[in-house]
């Protein structure tokens, strides 16, 4: 028997809410949304952790300009504090090397991080989920029963096609979906509501495509002034106002 499974709930005992940012496809802005949502909440004065579970393509550290932050071993791993967040990512252990992990190993690494990370007391733990809905999503569903899911999509039918499948899976797994966010919105696309007809999930808003966002990566002060982060902030404020 794997003893790590028994300790995860206790590790999360001081965490008030868990926000898992997910979506079916890669490259649709999940990491950007997770990182800036965490930053927004922290700047609002909340105690926030950010867990990057995208082991093959971790990027929240790049978005937030987190360098040289390392967790400390103390009865487990105490996350590094960076940009006002408690931060945990596989990059602490691999730097910029690729991580060629198969499914079972991704599961094992995910369980290990959940079991040994001492988050302490948090208002929010924001999780950047990897693309797709294989092992990491199924593990999160199994091990993080309190997680609430924020689903990211884009105006492309290629994305919404996958998001529809994701929403169907969330329904089957009975996972709470806070809502869907449309990223990279340009204004001339078909309404998202029509594409997601039949799914009883809140549409939380559209984030306009922001040409200035790329240049702000790694600089949290510039990020805070982007149209992108302000739009994320409005969505986060709406979510927290609804449930707090």
């Amino acid at each position: 028997m794997d003893p790590r499974l028994q300790i995860i709930d206790r590790r999360m005992a001081g965490v008030r809410r868990i926000l898992a940012v997910t979506g079916g496809k890669g490259g649709i802005g999940k990491s950007s949304l997770a990182a800036t949502a965490a930053l927004w909440l922290a700047r609002r004065g909340e105690r926030v952790g950010l867990l990057d579970l995208d082991f093959c393509g971790p990027s929240t550290h790049v978005i937030l300009g987190i360098r040289d932050a390392r967790p400390v071993e103390d009865g487990g791993l105490v996350p590094a504090i960076a940009q006002g967040l408690r931060f945990m990512s596989i990059v602490h252990f691999i730097d910029d090397r690729p991580a060629p992990l198969r499914g079972q190993e991704i599961s094992n690494a995910l369980i290990e991080l959940l079991a040994i990370t001492r988050w302490g007391d948090l208002d929010w733990l924001v999780i950047d989920m990897p693309p797709g809905f294989s092992d990491p999503l199924l593990d999160a569903a199994r091990l993080l029963g309190r997680a609430e899911y924020l689903v990211v999509t884009t105006p492309s039918v290629l994305t919404t096609e996958t998001v529809r499948k994701a929403l169907q899976l969330f329904r089957e797994l009975r996972l709470p979906v806070l809502g869907v966010v449309e990223n990279m919105h340009r204004g001339d696309e078909p309404p998202l509501a029509a594409q997601l007809a039949g799914f009883d999930v809140p549409l939380l808003g559209a984030i306009p495509f922001d040409d200035a966002y790329e240049a702000a990566l790694g600089d949290v002060e510039r990020l805070a002034h982007t149209t992108f982060m302000r739009a994320v902030g409005r969505i986060v404020d709406a979510i927290t106002a609804r449930r707090d």
């Binding site: 028994q6 206790r10 071993e73 791993l77 079991a115 040994i116």
Partner: peptide, 12 residues
């Protein structure tokens, strides 16, 4: 983090 694993063993 031996302590974290020991904690998990006893709880299990």
């Amino acid at each position: 983090h031996e302590w974290a694993l020991a904690d998990a063993v006893v709880a299990t």
